[in-house]
Design a binder for these strands. Structure first.
Lengths: 317, 317
DNA sequence: TTGAAAGCGCTAACAA
DNA sequence: TTGTTAGCGCTTTCAA
């Protein structure tokens, strides 16, 4: 009886037990498809991963899967084309037929307005991760980037650094600007000025590490007095580290290097890297919880704390 | 009309066009749940990812998602507990109700016999990735590890290396033994002997890089004449690289280092690493294709070629 | 080649 | 509190 499975309140204890016994005996298993059809709820949450190797998206999916399981949902994963994220079209043709109860939209899809329109038209709820555009349009989950960057600035400042370099991330990621601006603000708050920070957009070179390598060279040519470089992500920072090694710069004595972490990515790095660690798994969990529990028209910001992990590359440990 | 959507052969062209026009006009969208219920086919493929950050599992899921999309299926992802992979239980309680048409089982789940039993009992097809036990029980996808390792051995041999160290992977991964044995065989084939290869199981130290660092130290103490180290994966190799740097060993002059790659993981490494690159995305694609296209009782091996990527750490480039 | 109708296994609404 | 029943939107089968 459906009332037992769905934990309906008005069922006598004895009846519940009796039914549960039968369920256990017969090995009965709910059929999700039938339930979906009848209840017009799919118990499915959808998310996207990029079409290149990336811990960021996989950690996001992992957190989402974990939360789905805890809430009785299942996670459907689709790949999107990072070069050409016309996700709306993609959604129309495939994901739409699954009738997901909700979608998790990581950057840059969270800023694909056509996709948001399509979702709203279909009455599909969505939560965005670190959106850049129109952040109050839906529930949105943010990492408290500025906070972490400011902790990092303080750490570097205390180590004696006064001139900083920044390697920005992709321009379609809101956090590229956020993190750069946060560093400038933090340096100013510590007694420095905006001119102590030299920011450079990344000079793409195929992979993030290669890009970090190349951009570090340019940055140090433009502003030779820089003694610390902060990058948009850890992979860029690895390239900076490589540049330092190959050019006789001792780390962290001549050059301190810090990155920004997409969850446990920094544990892949060796030697270890100072990083602002973003709780991406947790962000995904929060996103799924909001999808399932919030009222359909909720519009709130969820801020997740980041964590400064100090390692050898800036004189820690 | 369902016959048009499902491309049934006996539909007159004019009718087909007429129906298609209506579909386009009304914005009709197939309801997967209804179809699943009626056809007792879910058009869902399930897979597992580990509960820690790992490119291996995420690349697998990505490949699976890609193939699913191409074949009109959707990918459902579940997280499993790497420490305690009682996946059978997990399956019973959650995934089972989705009535997946097929499952992709990466290691170590591919060797969870209770899970395989449960799947067979429910008539759920599955494809295993690199299984260790009972490889002919189902369709299984393998990377041609031995082939890659033998190419690597030849490369190292040609660079003049004669004494080799191996850092094994987890013992519940079939490939740990395969890769070690392949290196020994390859060295013998090149004119060396088994005693030229010193294999060590990894001395776990929290993360793979830290483990590589620690194990490299032990290995070089046990067999100081080693001039090349080959590790189970790239993350271990990064630790070996770190050990070399910190102990004044020049790479690749004093010590050559090579790893084994789970797809594009080596692009995360800097400086870049020689690696045997496993086409994990492709393996997942092949797995999904087998799930969808093979007869239900097929039992074949699918071998995927690996690729030797030679980089600075062994004297390449 | 097409139309019509009987389910698939649930939920939800209505009776009892 | 519990039994009963009408769909949910498809596929499949049977007629036409």
């Amino acid at each position: 009886m459906s009332r037992v499975v769905n934990e309906h309140p008005s069922v006598r204890d004895t009846t519940r037990e009796r039914v549960k016994a039968v369920i256990a005996e017969t090995g009965f298993q709910l059929n999700l498809a039938a339930r979906s059809l009848a209840a017009s709820q799919s118990y499915l949450i959808g998310t996207f991963v990029a079409d290149t190797a990336s811990l960021y998206y996989s950690e996001l999916a992992r957190g989402a899967a974990r939360a789905c399981r805890a809430l009785g949902y299942h996670l459907v994963t689709e790949e999107f084309d990072q070069r050409n994220p016309v996700a709306a079209d993609h959604y129309e043709r495939t994901l739409r037929q699954t009738r997901c109860d909700g979608m998790i939209l990581p950057p840059p899809l969270c800023d694909d307005l056509a996709l948001l329109d399509a979702l709203e038209r279909d009455g599909v709820r969505y939560v965005r991760i670190s959106p850049m555009l129109d952040p109050d349009r839906s529930v949105a989950v943010f990492a408290h980037d500025a906070d972490g960057v400011s902790q990092l600035a303080r750490h570097l400042w205390e180590k004696g650094h006064r001139r900083f370099g920044v390697i920005n991330g992709p321009s379609n990621f809101a956090s590229s600007a956020t993190r750069r601006d946060a560093l400038i603000a933090a340096v100013c708050a510590l007694g420095g000025s905006a001119s102590d920070v030299t920011a450079s957009k990344m000079l793409w070179d195929g992979t993030f590490p290669a890009t970090g390598y190349r951009t570090a060279g340019q940055l140090l040519k433009d502003a030779p007095d820089i003694s610390a470089i902060f990058t948009f992500n850890d992979e860029l920072a690895l390239g900076v580290l490589g540049y330092a090694h190959e050019n006789g710069l001792r780390v962290p004595k001549d050059l301190a290097v810090a990155g920004f972490d997409d969850s446990d990515a920094s544990s892949f790095a060796w030697p270890s890297l100072t990083t602002v660690s973003q709780p991406i798994v947790d962000m995904a969990v929060r996103a799924v919880q909001a999808l399932v529990r919030d009222s359909p028209h909720a519009r709130r910001r969820i801020e997740c704390p980041v964590r400064l992990v100090i390692r050898a590359s800036t004189g820690g440990e």
